[in-house]
Write a protein that binds this DNA or RNA. Structure first.
Lengths: 146, 146
DNA sequence: TATTGTTATACTCTATAACTATA
DNA sequence: TATAGTTATAGAGTATAACAATA
């Protein structure tokens, strides 16, 4: 990553998104590493642990990834014994994906680590600056009604 | 892209960066398409058009891409007749990459189109909100001293 | 020896198409 | 016929290793 980019790039949103995201990964990646998962896997654990039981496809839709991508993601999480597939009794085409006890502990530990990493990442903005930034980002990401 | 993501995701910076960036591409991609280039190619034209003549490696460092990636990028821009390679007389290992007249016109037109697209993207934040957001993003991307 | 550009190669992430089993 | 999961495959984008020309 470039440390001091030229002016022609410093105002380009695409460049700024890419590099800000890369800096976030620099902080959050090592924070989650001790738990043996990365950010995408943590996001899967989070939606599975959030509330109602989900099928693979339902989880994929929530995360905005393809259902074929979800197959590999669940394969890996199952290999790590963090989730289990169960055929749905109501609709035997569906795989209900459940957190294991180990998965729940991992979600909790890695989630806390990632939250702390995000706070460190946002630190340069100050407390109110960080809150305003996240709110703006939620609007731009379409995660919040206008 | 998910339209209304669940709460467990709406506060995650990685998710927000990914989806905000995707929304930006939705707006900026079509805006640049009439000029036959994408955002990465426009970024190359921009650093080449900014000031001093650059070698491939120097341009690659400014953009934060690998020098092997730059080879393919310059190949494509040369095929479109937007840039020209010239062996440096001072150091014959180096390729100085220069904008052609066509490249300069493309930089100007596509640059304006992209600027307008970015303004539309930021519109929901209001004028001062947008300025604050970009300033914060520059800090987080390391594009601006703290 | 080190550096620039280049090629070949591989790896990650993602998407499309086709198959299976269920509905 | 349509859907959920799966597999195979292919396309970006990027990175590593090795080579030729040059320093």
């Amino acid at each position: 990553m470039t440390d001091s980019p030229p002016d022609v790039l410093a105002s380009r949103l695409g460049y700024l998104f890419k590099h800000a995201h890369a800096r976030l990964l620099d902080v959050a990646g090592p924070a989650m590493a001790p738990f043996g998962i990365d950010g995408r896997e943590l996001a899967v654990l989070a939606v599975l642990g959030a509330g109602a039981p989900l099928s693979q496809q339902e989880a994929a839709e929530l995360l905005g990834v393809d259902r074929t991508t979800m197959v590999a993601l669940v394969d890996e999480l199952e290999r790590k014994e963090l989730v289990e597939r169960h055929r749905s009794a109501a609709d035997r085409r569906k795989n209900i994906v459940r957190l294991t006890e180990k998965g729940r502990r991992c979600l909790e530990g890695a989630g806390d680590a990632r939250d702390a990493a995000e706070r460190r990442f946002l630190e340069p903005l100050g407390e109110s600056g960080a809150a305003g930034f996240v709110a703006a980002l939620q609007i731009l990401a379409g995660a919040r009604p206008l």
